[in-house]
Simulated scan of single mutants.
Amino acid sequence: MRKVLTWVLLGTKGGYNRANIIKELHDLPANAHQLSKKLNLNYRTITHHLDVLEEMKVIEKAGKKYGQIYMLSDRMENHYDDFEKIWKQLKE
């Protein structure tokens, strides 16, 4: 998971936004609209980042279509300390 997080957050464009999404979902599961409002990002931008994070098995979703709730995957929860180390690098 550390390699996946390093690539998704440090090795690609949009890593800072993805990291913010992970931090928000760690606190509380949310849908794309809620994340868009909370992070002050375009809805389409949020859905793009959610798709990338889901593809990399960092997050999971529950529900169908609009209003789907996103949450961190169990694997991500187990490696959240790795994320926090990468988060520190992003903020520098």
Rank of each mutant, 00 (worst) to 15 (best):
R2L: 08
R2Q: 11
K3P: 00
K3Q: 09
K3M: 03
L5I: 07
L5Y: 06
T6R: 09
T6H: 10
W7V: 04
W7Q: 07
W7K: 13
L9G: 13
L10Y: 13
L10G: 07
L10P: 14
G11V: 12
T12V: 09
T12N: 12
Y16S: 15
A19K: 08
A19R: 10
A19C: 08
N20Q: 14
I21P: 02
K23Y: 00
E24R: 06
E24W: 04
E24Q: 09
H26L: 02
H26W: 10
D27C: 06
D27Q: 14
D27L: 15
L28C: 14
A30S: 15
A30G: 07
A30Y: 05
A30P: 12
N31P: 11
A32D: 10
A32Y: 10
A32C: 07
H33E: 14
Q34E: 14
Q34N: 10
Q34I: 15
L35V: 06
S36R: 05
S36A: 08
S36C: 03
K37A: 15
K37W: 02
K37E: 10
K38T: 07
K38Q: 11
K38D: 03
K38P: 02
L39M: 10
L39Y: 06
L39W: 05
N40L: 12
N40Y: 08
T45A: 08
T45K: 07
I46L: 09
T47N: 04
T47S: 05
H49P: 11
D51R: 11
V52K: 05
V52C: 10
L53P: 12
L53S: 08
E55T: 15
E55F: 13
E55Y: 09
V58L: 01
V58E: 01
V58W: 02
I59Q: 06
I59F: 07
K61D: 05
K64Q: 14
K65Q: 09
Y66P: 09
G67I: 02
I69G: 01
I69N: 01
Y70H: 02
Y70S: 00
Y70G: 00
L72F: 06
S73A: 14
S73M: 04
R75F: 06
R75K: 07
R75M: 08
M76S: 11
M76N: 09
M76H: 02
E77Q: 12
N78Y: 03
H79V: 03
H79P: 02
D82N: 01
F83M: 03
F83H: 05
E84S: 06
K85N: 04
W87S: 03
W87Y: 12
W87K: 09
Q89P: 00
L90E: 03
K91S: 12
K91V: 03
E92M: 11
